[in-house]
């Protein structure tokens, strides 16, 4: 049996709302350690991987590891029907592995709403990716910035064109674009420390200058999720997809892997 409870408006609900513009169906794996979700957008440009450790939920129980496909858009629609103050329970029993039960309980416990959502096949949304600890050292540059600043950069650039070029070297981290009506270049002088301050742009890992071109549509989606958190961490490599990461509590994370645009 798997069962988690959370308050209406919790971070999981916020994240599910924020990923809707990219994914419809997600593969969810549950273990005693927590709730993880993987999803691939229909164009195979963005892979999303998140892990919510058990301690971020109001209560969490998972007797046996389980994996299920969830139609995220339908689930979010159901969750939206909850009222302020409701406690939301998500449950799957071993007897019935065909659907997931979502329950809302009013704060005074006088009203309960039960809903069943059918599970779907989401096996194609599983991707074999290395453990992050192995991958981090493969990125040429990793920097952190306030997520509000990241969103602002993406919005400012998308006025001019659909693409952004992110360049990182020891001296500067820049976001630039060039379109028919003009160009925009936003430069940040980074701090260099392993312990980034919340309000600044910090270069945490640097093995050499790197630049990548990315579609701003996907970057804005990443930025939307990141604004649920204070800071966003961005990794660039010419051999790996761009990585956008936000930390959830001590051990949790939400990571986007975005394929770049490349000139043939």
């Amino acid at each position: 049996m798997f069962e988690l409870t959370m308050a209406k408006g919790s971070i999981l609900q916020g994240v599910l709302e924020a990923i809707l513009d990219l994914v419809n169906v997600a593969n969810v794996d549950c273990s005693s350690k927590g709730f993880s979700l993987q999803a691939l957008d229909t164009e195979h440009v963005v892979f999303l991987s998140l892990f919510f450790p058990s301690e971020v939920f109001r209560s969490y129980r998972c007797d046996e590891d389980c994996s299920m496909g969830i139609a995220i858009a339908d689930m979010v629609d159901l969750l939206r029907a909850s009222n302020d103050g409701d406690i939301i329970t998500i449950k799957v029993t071993d007897q019935n592995f065909e659907d997931i039960t979502i329950t809302f309980e009013s704060p005074d416990k006088t009203k309960t709403t039960d809903m069943d959502l059918q599970l779907v096949d989401a096996r194609s949304h599983r991707l074999k990716i290395s453990e992050w600890h192995d991958m981090e050292s493969e990125y040429q540059a990793i920097f952190c910035m306030p997520s509000a600043q990241f969103m602002l950069n993406c919005k400012s650039l998308s006025v001019i064109d659909d693409d952004v070029v992110i360049r990182v070297n020891e001296e500067v981290i820049s976001f630039s674009t060039k379109g028919k009506s003009g160009c925009v270049n936003i430069s940040h002088v980074p701090n260099k420390t392993d312990n980034p301050e919340k309000a600044s742009v910090t270069l945490t890992h640097m093995r050499g200058p790197v630049s990548l071109t990315l579609n701003l549509r996907y970057m804005k989606s990443c930025a939307k999720v990141s604004t649920l958190f204070d800071q966003v961490k961005i990794g660039l490599s010419t051999k790996l997809p761009l990585m956008v990461e936000c930390k959830i509590a001590e051990k949790g994370y939400i990571r986007y892997f975005v394929a770049p645009k490349i000139t043939e």
Partner: peptide, 14 residues
Amino acid sequence: SPTQKTLDRFFQSS
């Protein structure tokens, strides 16, 4: 102009 790549070249689908 640059072409959008997919993730298939980076990750192996299971």
